[in-house]
Amino acid sequence: MPAPVLAPFPWTDVWGQDAAVEALRAAVEDPAALAHAWLITGPPGSGRSTLATAFAASLVAEGPDDEATMRQVLAGAHPDVTVLRTEKVIITIAEARALVERSYFGPSSGRYRVIVVEDADRMTERTSNVLLKALEEPPEQTVWVLCAPSEADLLPTIRSRVRSLRLREPDVASVAELIVRRTGADPAIAEQAARHAQRHIGMAQRLATDDSARARRDQTLRAVLGTRGVSDAVEVAGQIVQAATDDAKALTAARDDAERRALLHTVGLAEGQAVPPAVRSQINALEDEQKQRARRSVRDGLDRVLTDMQSLFRDVIMLQFGREESLINQELAAELSVLATAWEPERTLVVLDHLAQTRESLERNVAPALALESLLVTVTSGRMP
């Protein structure tokens, strides 16, 4: 498949979404066609946030030649663009109210004020209701852009107030080509990473450039395939949770330390100096925020493992129905073929159903180790506990 033609700046980082880019460019150029609330949906890694930011840059700029303003937006430094990207489990009512309040200010220097809400699916019903009035009757020069995996992830009342734009899923070859261009990775590794990431661009880039991430994924899936009883299930579940926790710490530790040092510097304290009571509340608030972010990071890591496991048993069911040409985990084809022969399709479907239930359980804050142990017992027995 030929590579998509790159759109002009600021759309150059949007990959494989030509129809969506053209729709948004047309809206920017024709104010009469510009909706004041948009919902950009697409699977994780499809480029929702990148597209939303490029749209915001085009809206705020005085025209296609105003690159200075557009670069300011892309750098996250323009006063007329507010982006809410939460690293917590949910978007809070307080955060939503702050956005609504900001949406009623006119633009300070650009043509529009733009409010971008990434992961809008993390709003509870009460939080979503805070946005309803602002989405229905926004000020003339305010544009809302919500991002979510699908329309079904938002309330019908929200969906009725926005113009929806659905992104397409890029194919493996296109994602692999993008990774090669961005990172210089070996094309074979880039293709494997794109396949294993199931076309999620961010995850594919990490797998292509991080040997340890690729090794962890392979070890985890082989451990799942090697689970033979309850004791194995308990051990492998513990290994998965520990790996997700260690990975989250590795991703957040440097950032946490930098944030703490920056806060201490702001209040005039040197590293190691005693924190006075007047500042302690700010330190505590920062630590609470970092803990919430760490919990979210662990949960996202576990969800990634479940996605990888889902691809494993999806491959098994494909083999059971004679579809050998589109395996995600081609490197494990021999082991998966043995499993596909030994199991009935009904057993594979039971495992896939329990995988979906496990994902829901983790979202409800069920203890990760218990949820994974239950899932792995199903893998070994073919029956729900």
Rank of each mutant, 00 (worst) to 15 (best):
P2K: 02
P8N: 07
D13Q: 08
G16Y: 08
G16L: 05
A19G: 14
V21A: 11
E22W: 10
E22R: 15
L24P: 04
A26T: 12
V28G: 11
A35R: 13
R48N: 06
R48I: 06
S49R: 15
A54R: 00
A56Q: 07
S58P: 01
L59Q: 09
D66I: 09
T69E: 09
M70F: 01
L74M: 06
A75N: 09
A77I: 07
V81K: 01
T86A: 03
T86R: 05
T86M: 11
I93G: 03
R102L: 14
S103L: 07
S108V: 12
S108R: 14
R111V: 00
R111W: 04
R113K: 15
R122L: 13
M123E: 05
T124I: 11
E125G: 13
R126T: 15
T127M: 10
L135Y: 00
C147I: 00
E151Q: 11
S160Q: 00
L165S: 09
D171G: 08
A176G: 11
I179H: 02
A185R: 03
P187H: 06
I189E: 12
A190Y: 04
E191L: 15
R199E: 10
R199K: 14
I201T: 13
I201Q: 03
L207Q: 10
A208R: 06
S212G: 11
D218I: 06
T220M: 13
V224D: 03
G226Y: 02
V230E: 12
D232W: 02
E235N: 08
G238E: 03
V241A: 02
A244I: 09
R255D: 05
D256N: 14
D257E: 15
R261A: 14
G268H: 14
G272M: 05
Q273V: 08
A278M: 10
A278W: 12
V279L: 07
S281F: 06
E289G: 13
A294G: 10
R299H: 04
D300S: 07
G301D: 04
T307H: 13
M309P: 03
L312D: 00
F321E: 14
R323N: 13
R323E: 11
E325T: 08
E331N: 12
T341G: 15
A342I: 01
W343G: 00
E344A: 15
V350G: 02
V351T: 07
H354N: 11
T358P: 03
R359H: 07
R364S: 06
N365M: 04
A371G: 04
S381R: 09
P385S: 08
